[in-house]
Design a protein around this nucleic acid. Sequence first.
DNA 1: GGGGCCGTTGACTGACCAGTCAATCCAGGA
DNA 2: TCCTGGATTGACTGGTCAGTCAACGGCCCC
Lengths: 218, 218
Amino acid sequence: MAGDRAGAAAADKRRVILDAAVVAFARLGFHQCRVSDIAEEANVSYGLLYHYFRSKDEVLDTLFCERWDILLAFIAQTDTLDVPPRQKLHAIAAAIIDFYRYDPALMKVIIVEVMRSANTFGLRHSDRIAEAYVLIGEIVAKAQAAGSFKREVSPRFAALAFYGAIEQVLTGWIFGMLPEGEDEYEQAKASIVETICGGLDDTGRDTIPAATPESLRG
Amino acid sequence: MAGDRAGAAAADKRRVILDAAVVAFARLGFHQCRVSDIAEEANVSYGLLYHYFRSKDEVLDTLFCERWDILLAFIAQTDTLDVPPRQKLHAIAAAIIDFYRYDPALMKVIIVEVMRSANTFGLRHSDRIAEAYVLIGEIVAKAQAAGSFKREVSPRFAALAFYGAIEQVLTGWIFGMLPEGEDEYEQAKASIVETICGGLDDTGRDTIPAATPESLRG
DNA sequence: GGGGCCGTTGACTGACCAGTCAATCCAGGA
DNA sequence: TCCTGGATTGACTGGTCAGTCAACGGCCCC
């Protein structure tokens, strides 16, 4: 680094710390991970972390926001494409799954420590997270208006179910409860979209009425 | 309590502590909740908690196992009923949502602190949790074998998507991101089943091919 | 009426750790 | 060569808590 300008070197250190934090958070979990673990992983002294970040929390917040902004931009851009809604949803599922494929540690941290920690970091970023639901809901709403999606399910609800399926699959991979690999990634993208758009019912039989609590007690 | 036998009184105190823990965990979250908060809520001294439980963790483990056993038994029993698969899934969604309706604090604790804390308590109970996925998967597999569900989506995957949708909705209610009420509960049960079984596609139009990464770049 | 046992109490201990801060280092400008 | 200010260091502080333990109380049986 002998020739670096100070500013560039500083930006690098900040990034080194962020990348080290991803590794440390992914390995130990945010709560079990000590600030000294991050510093050690980054080959940097304990105190330097507080030169670049106000707190341990701010490190995680930064990691989340960086990636979430990319995802939100991707979803918004996908919605502007002139393709069928099913294809839009496939693109979004693919983007999220590919984020995991190409940087599993970062995605693990975002899913486990932010998205699924709704009473700590998830709550802090709930506005940002809700933006994704809204964008997905808009895709569904447009599809309903155009007649390609039916209207039985509200867009907001469809967005929840769609994202919920993706998150469950990612969680399965993250914790080794689901087999992982290139084939599985592609299969998952297709299955998520097929389940949410096509449904499980065999075609032509989807007229079975929903159960009521009473109908189960007879 | 003057007339109680010692054994009965002890069992009561244990239950009092468990119930107080639900309230305290739900209000503060497991990590922010101090053992003294539970003791205070139970009107019991700090040390007594350690007479009935080995640790703070064991309290949460107990709460989770008690309720999860009931849920597993319910799912297993539902599978033996002679009703269409869609109706079985509705019964399961209804059971989980009604657990929340009638004891929101306990369900909040189970969802937020166990199910969604996959790297701490969720990991410890992953076998138990996986049992639910397996049972739901078996319902789907049977439906596929009988021809009422199509075979494009694997039973394991369908179970994930189904449970994921339920969990997202519960999470939405728990954190006030989704409107709540009697109507919403019934609506959610129907919507979850309709989304997963019927799909979002308008009937007769579900032949749109899934997108490929290439088709989005053109 | 006394002795033993279970239930109960809450002050205390030991460990842990986020964040602070005073000191040092170093690069580049004057 | 010296000065200035940002980068870097890591020992230390202050506060937090889970879990321990020695002692107390009252019920029941002998």
